[in-house]
Design a protein around this nucleic acid. Structure first.
Lengths: 155, 155
DNA sequence: GGCTCAAGTCAACGTAGTTGACATGAGAGC
DNA sequence: GCTCTCATGTCAACTACGTTGACTTGAGCC
């Protein structure tokens, strides 16, 4: 079971800057933590963690996704998916059903309870983003998105 | 020992957007991966990983930091620090010396080899950031920083 | 010698992932 | 029915990274 709370890297450390871009590296690190901190706390209280949230998040946005496709999207092995997925099924946050035509694959869908938890966890993250975007204004938000796109596309 | 390469979440998944801010959540996720992917590959080739890089990064910017202070900055337990730190000492990427006045604490410092690895790993990350900033221009970069500050300060 | 603080170490555990091997369930073809 | 294939499920062993708790060692202080 996950922890209840985490003190890891809570306050940003004051480090000398060796390079002009060091601030950006650190902002990425602390930004990720800042966005996920409250959501992780909420999930921990539900006895869940980030990996469960990722599953719920994807299934919410791809209802009736097959397990193989879910593995693809998450980019993990089926063995790694196995445990968290079964927990979500046991807790009835997800349901499976055989496909109507393609009986070989099982389709996943959120239950009402699963939807609620997915939504609340994601809401914690969206709240952080919304506050930051509000402070930066529409043009600042657009610029942030553009920069993040460029970084993300660096595959 | 770490892996050599990782295919996890390589290409951004196409998910339906349930909420206006979903794109921002996903950009944060893929942005983090985009920034760290090449650096992690480089580190893996050196037989090191992200946790070693974090140690090297901090010590580079706080030469003569004591172990207790390093634990504070990293936000992990001394037991968790123990293994990666010892590896870095064995490999002579770091050195320790007793403090001149405060003999109780040991001060850490990078060796030339440690500096080289820290720099190359961070360079991979900075390269990604620089490209993104170049595309966005100075005002875009400033806006990105402002938004990330707001997110990071959400402790 | 005894107290304190910094550091080091050991054991047990939790979580998240990996690979490899193998079993099961459900069409599809002959 | 038998076999082949594909999707799914599961077992075992492993790695990496983190946790807590308990205990030791080293150094300085009184």
């Amino acid at each position: 079971m996950p922890k209840t709370s985490q003190a890891a890297g809570l306050h940003r450390a004051s480090l000398a800057k060796l390079n002009e871009l060091d601030a950006a590296l650190e902002l990425m690190y602390y930004g990720w933590r800042g966005m996920t901190l409250e959501a992780d706390d909420y999930l921990a209280k539900q006895g869940l963690s980030r990996s469960h949230h990722r599953i719920l998040y994807v299934v919410a946005r791809r209802p009736d996704i097959a397990i193989g496709a879910l593995i693809e999207v998450l980019g993990i092995s089926k063995q790694a998916l196995n445990r968290p997925l079964n927990l979500l099924l046991e807790r009835k946050l997800l349901t499976t059903q055989r496909a109507p035509e393609q009986h070989r694959s099982k389709l996943l869908r959120l239950t009402a309870a699963g939807q609620r938890i997915e939504q609340r966890a994601s809401d914690h993250e969206r709240k952080v983003m919304r506050q930051a975007f509000d402070r930066a204004g529409a043009s600042g938000a657009a610029a942030w998105m553009a920069v993040m796109e460029a970084i993300a596309d660096n595959n």
